[in-house]
Amino acid sequence: MVVDLDAFDANADDLVRRAGGTPIRVASKSVRVPALLRRVLERPGFHGILAYTLAEALWLEEQGVSDDVVVAYPTVDRGALARLVASPAAAGRITLMVDDVAHLDVVDSVRASHAVPVRVAIDVDAGLRMGGQHVGPKRSPLHDAADVVGLAEAIRRRHGFRLVGAMTYEGQVAGVQDAVPTQRAKSAVVRRIKALSLTQLEVRRREIRDALAATGAELEFWNAGGSGSVEATVADDVVTEVAAGSGLLAPTLFDHYRSFDPRPAAFYGLPVTRRPSPEVATVHGGGLIASGPSGKDRAPTPWAPAGLHLTGLEGAGEVQTPLTGHPAGLLAVGDLVWFRHAKSGEPFEHVSTVQLLSGPRFVEEVRSYRGHGLAF
């Protein structure tokens, strides 16, 4: 695995420009390399981490990577919760995400007292409701102001909890390409859905904010958006911070957005191990398929030398990946072929170390979460 620091830094600068002064909380799920998290957090415009598990958040806080970590998803990890409520320092720096009273019950099940208050934020559904259908990630059951206020009041009545934030992740805006050259009709529909989503969500965010304020709730932050929606998200004055992570490394699923044009920054190299025919070169391993709905867009892309293609019969395999295309005939056993992954962060689960490239030279080898012996 290689990360091009010049591209990484350029992408970070572009995210800051797009955010227009609104702080960016780094989505660690899309990075998963502590050295890179530290690097981006040192840049003006970035503050805090949006983690994906509580165990991860605890480790990041213990290691001093960040003193402001929001866990983006509800947790039922009782072991991690027990560690949280046993540490006043960690509990003061980590915020849990909730969308159900049941999440509060799990926290209470691991503690004998309420001496250590637990910071919580409410995850609000940010999907588009249209014609009786729901378009967007299936996350929170809370959609309207009444739903959110109901949970906020339940939190207020419970000892040992403090409501400090809210989240509205509009994944149907932030995480879907809208300018795919080979899918012009679909891209037009996606852009229409995005526009409708933003219009509806702006109204709903304001209603929820005002309803919470009427109950006396004082939120420290309102998190929203992602790499693909930075400008649109920060245009809403309810939002106090935007999340971003994939825009730093620019995987292939972020190649075709109208709003930004990031520089690919993460690659993995695979050696040619055999030549089954003059037209085919086979590399070792490579089948790092991205999560999400199965399809060709979830497969890795041969990137350099340019012009290589996966085969329809084998695709990207766990132990071997045959490649066709003109450059295949020019490759020798031992040559490296460079690939890009479809999603950001996920390929680092397969390696323990990452080579950092600056200009023409490798300047440092750093460890991924996996290299630290961690699997979150």
Rank of each mutant, 00 (worst) to 15 (best):
A217C: 12
L142Q: 05
A224C: 11
F221A: 11
R184Y: 05
L196V: 03
R157S: 11
A213H: 11
G150Q: 06
R191T: 13
G175Q: 12
A214K: 10
G160Y: 03
K138C: 04
R162M: 07
G165F: 08
E202G: 15
G175S: 13
W222A: 10
A152Q: 04
H143V: 13
R139P: 00
H159P: 04
N223A: 15
V203E: 14
K194N: 07
P181K: 14
L212D: 07
M167L: 15
A211I: 06
L219W: 04
E170W: 12
P141G: 04
A152G: 05
P137Y: 07
Q200K: 00
D210S: 05
A174Q: 10
Q172D: 06
E220R: 06
S140I: 09
L212I: 05
R209A: 07
R157H: 07
W222G: 07
Q172S: 13
T199L: 14
L151C: 07
T215F: 10
P141R: 03
A152D: 00
L201I: 12
R209I: 01
A195V: 05
S197C: 07
I155E: 01
Q172T: 05
A211F: 05
L219E: 03
K194H: 11
V164L: 06
G225I: 04
V148Y: 10
A224T: 11
R206W: 02
S140V: 11
V203M: 09
V173W: 00
G175P: 00
R192I: 00
A166L: 15
R139F: 02
P181E: 05
V190Q: 08
S140G: 08
V164P: 02
V180T: 10
V203T: 14
A146L: 09
A154D: 11
K138E: 14
R139D: 00
P137C: 01
R204T: 10
H159G: 02
A224K: 02
A195T: 13
V149N: 03
R157C: 00
D144W: 10
R157L: 08
E207V: 02
R158D: 06
A166V: 14
G216L: 02
V173E: 01
A211W: 01
E207D: 10
A224F: 13
E170G: 09
G216T: 04
L212G: 01
T182L: 12
R162D: 09
L163V: 06
A214W: 02
I155G: 00
A214C: 06
V180L: 14
A146M: 01
H143S: 06
V149F: 03
G171D: 10
Y169P: 07
R191K: 09
T199Q: 15
P181Q: 12
A224N: 08
V180R: 14
T199E: 15
A146I: 04
A211T: 05
V149D: 03
L198R: 14
T215V: 11
A174K: 05
P141L: 02
L163H: 13
L142R: 10
A154T: 01
A185W: 15
D147H: 12
V164T: 12
Q177G: 08
S197V: 03
T199A: 15
A166R: 07
A211C: 11
R184Q: 15
